[in-house]
């Protein structure tokens, strides 16, 4: 079944087609959510929301991008909104001296070292950019579609995100360890 046929059948509420769309795209969507949230329980919950929203709003999908890119967009939006809510709640509860009421995100099983660990500490929007580019392999145009920004801004935002990540990493990259920009000899280039 072509993607176009699949979407058409999904628009008619065809459960088989919905399952097929899920089978084709869920590894990507779920993986992105796990990486964004660093918590498999939350990713499980939000993945449900993503697909329910997608099936409910599939009439809005205009076909200009791949369906997977459209799902990425929904997933990124859901994840960013969720992280925003969690942060607000955590800050409020911490202000009230009850930080433990909301459990910190990133459980032990999800904790990873080095790049993954640093990736978890960059701003969620930067994380989304880096994940879409490097782990999901999207080109700049698809990233722009997924994030709802202009294609021209993807390169500069990725540059900034990479630099922030490298600052956090502080080591492990040859003789440029810990530096955010190389020291060029005057007049070089």
């Amino acid at each position: 079944m072509t993607e176009k046929d699949l979407i058409q059948r999904c628009r008619q509420g065809d459960r088989v087609a919905q399952r097929e769309l899920y089978e084709r795209t869920s590894p990507k969507v779920y993986r992105l959510l796990v990486r964004m949230l660093r918590n498999t329980d939350d990713a499980f919950d939000l993945a449900q929301d993503v697909y329910l929203k997608a099936f409910a709003q599939i009439d809005k999908f205009d076909g200009r991008s791949a369906i997977a890119t459209w799902l990425y967009r929904i997933a990124v939006n859901e994840a960013l909104q969720f992280l925003r809510r969690v942060n607000i709640a955590r800050e409020r509860l911490q202000q009230m001296g009850v930080a433990a009421t909301v459990e910190p995100h990133g459980n032990g099983a999800d904790a990873r070292l080095d790049v993954e660990g640093s990736l978890a500490t960059v701003a969620p929007t930067d994380r989304a950019l880096l994940l879409l580019r490097y782990q999901e392999g999207l080109d700049y145009r698809s990233i722009a579609d997924a994030l709802g920004c202009a294609e021209g801004t993807v390169a500069s935002r990725l540059n900034r995100a990479r630099e922030r990540l490298r600052v956090l990493l502080k080591g492990g990259y040859g003789n440029r360890e810990g530096t955010t920009s190389p020291m060029h000899p005057k007049g070089s280039g």
Partner: peptide
């Protein structure tokens, strides 16, 4: 609580 921006 998190979903609805809980504040103690």
């Amino acid at each position: 609580l998190v979903l609805y921006d809980a504040k103690q």
